[in-house]
Design a protein around this nucleic acid. Structure first.
Lengths: 112, 112
DNA sequence: TAAATATATTCCTTGACAGGAATATTCTCC
DNA sequence: GGAGAATATTCCTGTCAAGGAATATATTTA
């Protein structure tokens, strides 16, 4: 899954809004369509694009599907964006470095 | 400048590559066209889109234009992405919280 | 001033994609 | 099993964006 897939999935206004909605809580297709004031088929189609991009997943609940965000693409975007941080964070003083290293260690320990 | 503008600017493969290139160093239009193996007019057009999205700026140097990245849209994306961090960083232990608060204080002091 | 270089712009064509409408599929409940 | 609800899919149409080719604009150099 490459970046342009994720980015073009997010570039469509309705899909971006869907993602914003799902950030707060998982939702069914109908609920999403209601919130965005779009018709159900469009909601389904947008969700399909998001799903193919790996950005959402769903659980089947009777004849409804409950969609929620997946973390991986956001992690990927974050990783990509990290590479650009030194464009605007040119200044690293000692305390900053110390805290960042310490933070990394803590995160690493939490993975186990 | 809203997010979808930035995202659709980045969603095009050639433009994403241009951004990746400019991350390393500023470049002229011709150099960009060479690197991406595209024709000069397409490079100009893509740069125009990136410029309208506020992602690049240029300095005029004789009859050449030297393009470089602007930091603002990346800051904006980073800010947007921050809102999604708790999707995958669900676990906050005490040490984590302590360090994050401390980090915020440090950043705030650096702004002055 | 003429030629050459670097870049931007315009026009045209083609392909992708979003929305509308209708329909198919799947499940629940009576 | 039939009706209704929730969701997915298909077909159609219009719009928009990217690439190609040609041209315009600006700047340097001879």
């Amino acid at each position: 899954m490459d970046y342009t897939t994720i980015l073009s999935a997010l570039a469509e206004p309705n899909r971006l809004q869907i993602v914003e909605l799902l950030r707060k809580s998982p939702l069914t297709v109908g609920e999403i369509a209601d919130h965005l004031d779009i018709r159900q088929p469009q909601a389904s189609k947008h969700l399909r694009v998001l799903h193919k991009a790996g950005m959402v997943e769903f659980t089947v609940e009777a004849n409804r599907r409950i969609y929620k965000l997946r973390s991986e693409p956001f992690k990927a975007l974050d990783l990509w964006l990290k590479e650009y941080r030194d464009i605007w964070e040119e200044k690293f003083d000692n305390l900053d470095c110390y805290l960042q290293d310490l933070q990394k260690k803590v995160n690493k320990e939490n993975e186990n």
